[in-house]
Nucleic acid binder design. Structure first.
Lengths: 163, 163
DNA sequence: CAACACTTGACAGTGTGCTGTCAAAATGAC
DNA sequence: GTCATTTTGACAGCACACTGTCAAGTGTTG
């Protein structure tokens, strides 16, 4: 066929690539929609989506702030701010950490547990309601594809070609 | 069957609901991943993901800031800030609007067009690369499901039951 | 034309996440 | 035990999107 032209090489847009572009746009819309739904759910309980997430990370066992950040791949600083707010609102508390003098353990209070468990209710109602409107097998396929995509993205540190 | 117990009614967690919960978590991860990819792509061009989005909205025809905001369901204020920055960087400009004295028309400059078109290249390379790692039919199914979910979310303004 | 409602840009403030820097505490190597 | 490295919390600053308020401009209606 024709020779390679290394400079003017125009990327040819595959069909799969076009579908993925559409998927990406839906991902953004869904992200917004799910976030909004989370805010609707959390409002009556007096939380925000972010607080819910942080509180949810320490339901099973207390963790230092930096540990929470690591577990959900956020920065210490973001989690710290929210954790302080949660303590201020009485939904969580800091415990002395026998293993580390600075890194106090973070844990929900009774009020915190109660808020989260009532949110779990709302969340199940929500996911049941929405998922009832799609084919379950297709939904499983979707989950499988999304897992593949997450993996592909993680592996795609955009290796600068052949270096 | 058993009578209705309107108060203590515990939501029973359907299987589809559980799958959707997983899908939601992947949605958040993918959102983060795609956003990061966009930032990697835009950095060499001197843009950010948000700037790209705003610039992309006026490729075909100039629009006032409020029109852009409306088209991409953002607030006027967010778009205004970015539009001002883009003008400051010489990537876009304001034109007098014959139809409205205050609402100037926003449009990319030649430099802006060039930046966006080079980004289109990078974006195609990216989507081709990633989409090659999943089954195309499954990807189409995913798109279909996501469209259904977007629709379901939009319709789910959480109508307070029967009011 | 006058009075009204709506749109628009400007300005101020909030929430969420990020990066960067610093010092104290903990850890690991020697 | 000592010293360099890493982890951690605290503090400061930035990007992005939001809400709310105000005045100027536009349009609609009587």
């Amino acid at each position: 066929m024709s020779e390679v032209e290394p400079r003017a090489e125009v990327e040819p847009r595959t069909e799969a690539g076009d579908v993925l572009t559409e998927v990406i746009m839906r991902t953004f819309r869904l992200y917004g929609g799910f976030l909004e739904a989370a805010e609707v759910m959390t409002k009556p309980v007096g939380l925000t989506a972010a607080w819910w997430q942080v509180l949810g990370a320490v339901l099973r066992e207390p963790l230092p702030v930096s540990g929470i950040a690591r577990e959900m791949s956020l920065t210490r600083q973001s989690v710290q701010r929210i954790a302080d707010l949660l303590v201020e609102k009485g939904l969580a508390e800091y415990l002395p950490n026998p293993a580390h003098k600075r890194a106090k353990l973070f844990r929900p209070t009774a009020a915190g547990y109660q808020a989260v468990s009532s949110l779990a209710q709302a969340q199940h109602a929500f996911t049941n309601r929405i998922s009832a409107q799609v084919d379950v097998d297709d939904l499983r396929t979707t989950l499988k594809v999304m897992e593949r995509l997450v993996k592909a993205l993680d592996a795609d540190e955009w290796p600068p070609q052949d270096t």
